[in-house]
Design a protein around this nucleic acid. Sequence first.
DNA 1: TCTGGGGTCCTAGGACCC
DNA 2: TCTGGGGTCCTAGGACCC
Length: 390
Amino acid sequence: MKKYRIIFHIDLNAFYASCEEAEDPKLKNHPIGIAKNSDRGILTTANYEARKYGVTSAMNVYEAKKRCPHIKIVPPNFTLYEEKSRLFFEYLETITEKLEPASIDEGYLDVTEDLQGLHPLELAEKIQAHLLKEYQLPASIGIAPNPFLAKMASDMKKPLGITVLRKRDVKEKLWPLPIENMHGIGKKTVPDLKLIGIHTIKDLANYENHHTLSRFLGNQTNAFFDKAWGNDSRLVDPTRAETIHSIGNSKTYEGFLHDYESAVKALDQLTQTVIKRLHKHERASKTITVQVRFNDFTQHSKNFSLEYHTSDFDIIFELVEDLFDQLFEEKPIHLLGVSAGNLAKEETLFKQLNIFEAKESMPKEEQLDKILESINANYPKNLLKKGFKK
DNA sequence: TCTGGGGTCCTAGGACCC
DNA sequence: TCTGGGGTCCTAGGACCC
């Protein structure tokens, strides 16, 4: 007899909006949207009252106001959302250690061994009620034998839904869904799939020619195909979210940046934010990336990997400036981004330092020289620095 | 619908090493 | 010498998710 796992996917409904409603209950019966600017840009979230008017996440504010003229635009309060998210996961940890956070407002739980003597449905109801009562956070819960089905299930009833999706329900409940509803299939891939006759998850499950399929789905072809049949052997992995891979900061400049100097000033700000967050997470970075989007929406990035990890502002900013020099064009700049990747824990580095007397112990001047040397060796074009208004 | 900011993962070519 | 194969890392770009 095969033993099925019991996986929950828990998704907090309209999370940012729900946080705002929890803080200010007056907002509850009023349509609200979360957006930085009250007359431009896009909504990160809309509450369900606003969704009744056809307002959705990622819709621009102008359109949202057209559909719902009395919508209230609330600026985001990320400190509040992070705090609520922390409480959410802290509570889930009391249910099971087998918890994998998937984003700020959703997570997977393997409750196979932690049912507390309850029926899975009862446990889900208990969790949902607790989240609503203690934190005023409505949640949708999917119950399934694997993470993929649990994720698809939690999407089926929102808000405050609980949906069981068993293997034997796949043909009836999963297959009729349009292919764009499949987690991992985005708006670039959908037209390709439709071109070869795949419009629903059923079409994917019954598509014979995997060679053709792999032209569009690449490496993931078999994984997607298995998922279409309701199969997904991935384990709930609590360590996955513990490893941070990159820390970045980017900003859109509505009025555009028109010259080199103001861009460098902006990059200074972005770099400072990145460094602050690196320190907060006690991480040092080896690879720095600078990203530029111009007013014509062309986008470019450059990155450079250092010989060793650092979290020093002077070193990183020197590199940021240098990378930007290579990206600079005489066009108004719409977006700038700085990102630190290839991260290592600082405590680990200290250990290495003690053993090898690594280069971090050199005076900063010397470190900078070394780095510039290394950059120039790799980017001889750099030295020319032509066409810049310095 | 003319557009935020935080990320993860994949791809593909090239450099380099054995 | 004109030519193998495997592996890893670096770099730029793109797709996707919330």
